[in-house]
Design a protein around this nucleic acid. Structure first.
Length: 414
RNA sequence: GGGUCACUGGCAGAGUGGUCGAAUGCACCGGUCUUGAAAACCGGCGAGGGUUAAACCUCCCAAGGUUCAAAUCCUUGGUGGCCCGCCA
């Protein structure tokens, strides 16, 4: 969540930054009022509590000295009643503030371009040239079925639409990709972790998926557990409620998990093929850093994803997301879009974000430096989405006869 | 899933209704001593909120409750150990 103190102290500046991310002026004002109300309520409650504590001590003294406590008891009882009222007021104020602030997105970095949607994202650079074909390149679902790599119908039979089954060489390629990605990232200093794919509410609040995006999550019936939409959730929350030593930062991790998304609101987009599935595999990078390290680690993570694509021989481009396309928790995001000849366009395959202290404040991830506790910065990025990488391999390396050449870096994993 | 015992500061570990945010030891930080280090000695040393700074408030797994007063008593939940059951 955002720093309310900052809003309080620096109202105009913070408000206009939030408005770049389409937060209404009303909500910002509400937030400010709610915070002021809470402060007042707290002060009143604590003052009364101080009095009560004092009276209690006095009571103990009276008892010890054998003095009469009747009168004191009345005073203490009265006090208690007001104390309870004040506590109620304080709790209500807390709830009000919480309800608002948990739904307010992060403040975008100053250098994030203004814009309405993905049309306004800014291309940073292109890497590798899209291949030229002597024939009309086909889309991945045709290739996948022709090669017997993916069975879309049977996936639907087992679960529902947007589920598929990968088989034969397709399944082996998937496994090879995962191993290749994990090794690649580990060599760049990202420690491999294997984490739960079901998490509780607290974890999802920590990284910002809840309370606002409940509709996109699969929830386990009768349990406070959800299927993770990304490994960012369990990996980042590994350090929830912890105070780390400044010297042990940055902590850089990578993990492979399945991810589950309801894709509510994605309408009829990408219904065909495996671009947008309810369940997909992803290797994720997560970093916990000191405040002064996050920019450098961010670049490292972008390079990691880009170099991985290059190693696979996949043409791609890097774009900086504009304010309108920026995710809820991100202060800054660079997307990597891979070239898909079948669709004749670049499609997102990785997204690297710096959330600065937004998640850390929610999840209470801090570090101690020179005796002070400071909020950490958290970053996450895909490296890469496995299904989409398979799509890219199929489309970029397809031959006229429909066969697919597998990148040489993957040979040893097959 | 059932039973049972436990959960206190970085760690170990006292504290079982009142001045306890919490003894003591270890670790850690600063100082004295020393050519330097070790040892010894002296001092400091949990977290969050709040304040210019203080005062003050909260936190002894969590949430409730009893009480004028809870680390201490009660209830529920969580986690861990052991026993039983079940299982990949």
């Amino acid at each position: 969540m955002i720093d309310v103190k900052l809003l309080q102290k620096n109202f105009d500046e913070t408000a206009s930054a939030l408005m770049r991310k389409k937060v209404s002026a009303d909500i910002i004002t509400e937030l400010k009022t709610a915070n002021e109300n809470l402060k007042t309520a707290k002060l009143a409650y604590e003052t009364m509590q101080a009095k009560q504590n004092e009276l209690s001590k006095l009571f103990g003294q009276y008892k010890k000295e054998g003095k009469n406590t009747d009168e004191l008891k009345i005073e203490v009882d009265n006090n208690k009643a007001t104390l309870n009222d004040l506590l109620e007021t304080q709790r209500a104020a807390e709830e009000t503030l919480d309800a608002i602030i948990m739904r307010v997105p992060n403040i975008p970095d100053a250098d994030v371009p203004d814009g309405a949607d993905e049309e306004d994202n800014i291309e940073i650079k292109k890497v590798l040239t899209p291949p030229a074909f002597a024939f009309t390149p086909r889309e991945h679902w045709e290739l996948a079925e022709a090669n017997g790599w993916i069975d879309f119908e049977r996936g639907v039979k087992l679960a529902k639409s947007r589920f598929s089954v990968v088989l034969g060489m397709g399944a082996r390629l998937e496994r090879a990709l995962i191993n290749f990605m994990l090794d690649f990232n580990r060599e760049r200093g990202f420690m491999e972790v294997s984490v739960p794919m079901l998490v509780n509410r607290r974890a999802l609040e920590g990284t910002g998926q809840l309370p606002k995006f409940e509709d996109d999550l699969f929830k386990i019936e009768d349990e406070e557990l959800y299927l993770i939409p990304t490994a960012e959730v369990p990996i980042t929350n590994l350090y929830q409620d912890e105070i780390l030593n400044a010297a042990e930062l940055p902590i850089k991790m990578c993990g492979y998990t399945s991810c589950f998304r309801k894709e509510a609101g994605s309408g009829g987009r990408d219904v065909r093929g495996m671009i947008r599935q309810h369940q997909f595999h992803k290797v994720e990078l997560v970093a916990i850093t000191r405040a002064d390290q996050s920019d450098a680690v961010f670049e490292e993570m972008v390079a990691c994803a880009s170099d991985l694509l290059s190693a696979l021989g996949l043409p791609h481009r890097l774009v900086t997301l504009c304010t309108g396309d920026l995710g809820f928790g991100a202060a800054k995001t660079v997307d990597l879009e891979v070239w898909l000849p079948g669709q004749n366009t670049y499609r997102e395959i990785s997204s690297v974000s710096n959330t600065r202290d937004f998640q850390a404040r929610r999840a209470k991830i801090r570090y101690k430096e020179e005796g002070k506790n400071l909020l950490a910065h958290t970053l996450n990025g895909s490296s890469l989405a496995v299904g989409r990488t398979m799509v890219a391999i199929m489309e970029n390396f397809q031959q006229e006869d429909g066969s697919i050449i597998i990148p040489t870096v993957l040979q040893k994993y097959l």
